[in-house]
Design a protein around this nucleic acid. Structure first.
Lengths: 224, 224
DNA sequence: ACAGGTTCTCAGCGGTCTCTCAGTGCCGCT
DNA sequence: AGCGGCACTGAGAGACCGCTGAGAACCTGT
């Protein structure tokens, strides 16, 4: 099992490395967020241990970035005791578990094994774009804490846009994937985009659902 | 699995060859950038290990050249420890991963395997010419950090020029590929080049979009 | 059969984009 | 210096695109 440990404190990092190697893990170290992000991208690890306080890029952002890239490697976050960061935020960003310093090896190893058992690549149930979330299984949509009611067609359209958030999708692509036809009047897409805007953007003064004239639509990943 | 190792230091090259062969790779060696570029072009390798400091053509330029030719073979770059070159630049130029000397075989082989798993031919999302970037999927253009708004026709024209940056493209070529006609008044190209200059060059005091009198236009690859 | 909700069509509008045209400027050649 | 040709630019007309309100068709459960 390959573990990536991202931790800037040298002594802590070395201790973790020794401890985990003794447990039979293959351990790589990264000493700042940038290196950690890079290694996590290319290294094909089974699990990542990620400190929050890091030089260059914070652990938060490393995690966020990886998830944005559809990289679902299990992540265990480490935080200092003083609660400057709220660990719940970490879980929101896509971490799978967390530990507060100081902690014992026994606990760390137990948590890691639990993560490995639960298995990697479990794509999270919900889609996110900024504070907009959509849960395909439960058919629920909300902006922040506020739930939003959508009709089936509206839901399907938003789901498609969220699966391609930040990309521009053309009306014909949308027709093909959401309406399952290709020779329909594209105006129906315009109408439904209008409906969606009135439900997911306008009440919150957002502009996530953007028109790209001559090309299609783009759902801004950061909520616009 | 076929690996091309481009490395001028004889002892290092031989050591890499032996080490990788022991891992079951078929290894070819090149001892300068020119030879490396040539072999990479014709050799159909699964992965290329490319030193940065090379005689004749630097590893940077080998990489850049290959990518410019739409050759997306996975490239792992090697750099000396002293950070004369910033490895981030290497990634910008289209390398897929990098290692800093000295490194262990274990790490090298792990990274190579990771690269091979991830697979080649993952065409990079964005086009670059100096600090000008264009992302076809996201339909975004920016000069440095500054985003630029373009109309569909302007976008299509700039995309075509960027795909042929540093080359001279004639107005008739442009008409054929961007307007999809060939018997239109070439003046429309002049008009749109003018529009583009006002958006991507003038506000930044650049001159990337150059006129080649009697021949066409050239987009300078380094931002002019 | 009816009510309520959903899907889709249609036509009009406002704004943007595209392209043409004509006049001007610039370059290279003799 | 003068000339011819090539490239640039401002203005404007028309086409095109996307948005919206209204309403018809449809579907579903009572």
């Amino acid at each position: 099992m390959r573990v990536l440990v991202v931790e800037d404190e040298r002594r802590m990092a070395a201790a973790l490395q020794r401890g985990l190697q003794a447990e039979g893990f293959a351990v790589d170290l990264a000493h700042d967020g940038e290196e950690g992000l890079h290694l996590a991208r290319v290294g094909d690890y089974d699990v990542v241990v990620l400190d929050i306080m890091l030089p260059r890029i914070s652990g938060y952002n490393v995690c966020k970035q990886l998830r944005a890239e559809e990289n679902w490697v299990p992540i265990l976050m480490l935080s200092a005791k003083d609660g400057e960061y709220d660990m719940a935020d970490g879980l929101d960003l896509g971490a799978d578990d967390y530990l507060t310093k100081p902690f014992s090896y026994v606990v760390l190893v137990a948590r890691l094994r639990a993560l490995l058992r639960r298995g990697a690549n479990r794509r999270p149930a919900v889609l996110r774009a900024g504070d907009l979330t959509l849960d395909p299984a439960r058919r629920r949509v909300s902006r922040g804490q506020q739930p939003i009611e959508l009709t089936p067609r509206e839901f399907a359209l938003l789901e498609y846009l969220m699966r391609h958030h930040d990309e521009v999708v053309s009306k014909s692509e949308i027709l093909e994937h959401v309406w399952d036809t290709f020779d329909t009047d594209p105006n129906v897409v315009e109408v439904y985009v209008g409906y969606l805007r009135r439900k997911v953007d306008a009440p919150f003064s957002r502009n996530a659902l953007q028109t790209v004239r001559g090309a299609g639509y783009r759902l801004a990943g950061d909520g616009g």
